[in-house]
Amino acid sequence: MKPYPILAVAALLPMLALAKEHELSLDKLPAKVAETIRATVGQAKVEVEEADDEDAAPAAYKAEWDQDGSKHEIILAADGAILCREDGITQEAAPAPVQAALKELAKSGTLKEIEKITANNTISYEAEVKTAEGKIEVKFDASGKEIARKIEKKDKKDKKEEGDEDEDNDGDHGHHGDHEDDDDGEN
């Protein structure tokens, strides 16, 4: 028996403990923040953490929960105001113009996730499509008009892993740093 899987799990344990360390309990939050979260999620199990750099200021907290088979997230200010809400939805739950846009988008790959986003009193929809080349994230307004698109191409290592090949040519286990073969010039 090779000791590698055991060593890998042992190496991950401190990271898992660190992830749990950043999770906050409702009773440790400012009263208005805890009140807003409880009123929003009801009795669902919620994970709360401090907002990260990805969440624009004045974001202070992020709460995530699963309900009715969908993922949900709210970003809150320190005073408990909801700055942004993301709700996982089905294609059928989107307005008809967005459904039509999603149907067209799905022709390029497999529709993986759809979210309804409410921020600044505006509703938009974001969809993720998995393609052979990577993934595409597209944001639509409520009329189905595309307002943003982000394309993430797979690198050669990802394609190899997905192809279920057993051979490891470079011995680079999990390092996704600098890629010298990045010749397309796009980021």
Results as ranks from 00 to 15, higher is better:
15 M>P: 06
16 L>D: 04
16 L>S: 03
17 A>P: 01
18 L>F: 01
18 L>M: 02
19 A>E: 01
20 K>W: 00
20 K>P: 00
20 K>S: 00
22 H>I: 00
23 E>M: 00
29 L>Y: 10
29 L>V: 04
29 L>W: 03
30 P>T: 03
31 A>D: 05
31 A>E: 10
32 K>E: 04
32 K>H: 04
33 V>W: 06
35 E>Q: 14
35 E>A: 15
36 T>F: 10
36 T>H: 09
36 T>S: 11
38 R>S: 08
40 T>H: 13
40 T>S: 12
40 T>L: 11
41 V>G: 05
41 V>R: 09
42 G>A: 07
43 Q>M: 05
43 Q>S: 12
43 Q>I: 04
45 K>C: 05
45 K>F: 12
45 K>S: 11
46 V>D: 02
47 E>Y: 00
47 E>S: 01
48 V>E: 01
49 E>L: 00
50 E>Y: 03
52 D>W: 13
53 D>Q: 13
54 E>C: 10
56 A>F: 15
57 A>H: 09
57 A>E: 14
57 A>P: 12
58 P>M: 14
59 A>E: 13
62 K>R: 12
62 K>M: 10
63 A>G: 13
63 A>L: 13
65 W>L: 01
66 D>Y: 02
67 Q>Y: 12
67 Q>E: 12
67 Q>W: 07
68 D>P: 04
68 D>M: 04
69 G>E: 10
70 S>E: 05
70 S>F: 12
70 S>K: 09
71 K>G: 10
72 H>N: 14
74 I>K: 06
75 I>Y: 03
77 A>V: 10
77 A>G: 11
78 A>H: 08
78 A>Y: 05
79 D>S: 02
81 A>R: 14
81 A>G: 14
82 I>K: 12
83 L>S: 10
85 R>A: 13
85 R>T: 13
87 D>S: 15
88 G>D: 05
88 G>N: 02
89 I>G: 06
90 T>E: 02
90 T>K: 03
91 Q>W: 00
91 Q>K: 07
92 E>I: 01
92 E>H: 08
93 A>M: 11
93 A>L: 06
93 A>S: 15
94 A>Q: 01
94 A>I: 02
95 P>L: 06
95 P>S: 11
98 V>K: 07
99 Q>S: 09
100 A>H: 13
100 A>D: 14
100 A>I: 04
102 L>Y: 09
103 K>L: 09
104 E>T: 14
105 L>P: 08
105 L>T: 02
106 A>D: 12
110 T>Q: 15
112 K>M: 14
114 I>V: 13
114 I>Q: 07
115 E>P: 03
115 E>N: 12
115 E>W: 08
115 E>M: 11
116 K>L: 07
116 K>F: 03
117 I>C: 11
118 T>R: 15
118 T>D: 13
119 A>S: 15
120 N>P: 06
122 T>I: 14
123 I>D: 09
124 S>D: 13
124 S>M: 14
125 Y>D: 08
125 Y>N: 07
126 E>A: 13
127 A>I: 03
130 K>G: 11
130 K>R: 12
132 A>V: 15
134 G>F: 15
134 G>Y: 14
135 K>M: 07
135 K>H: 15
136 I>G: 06
143 S>T: 11
143 S>E: 06
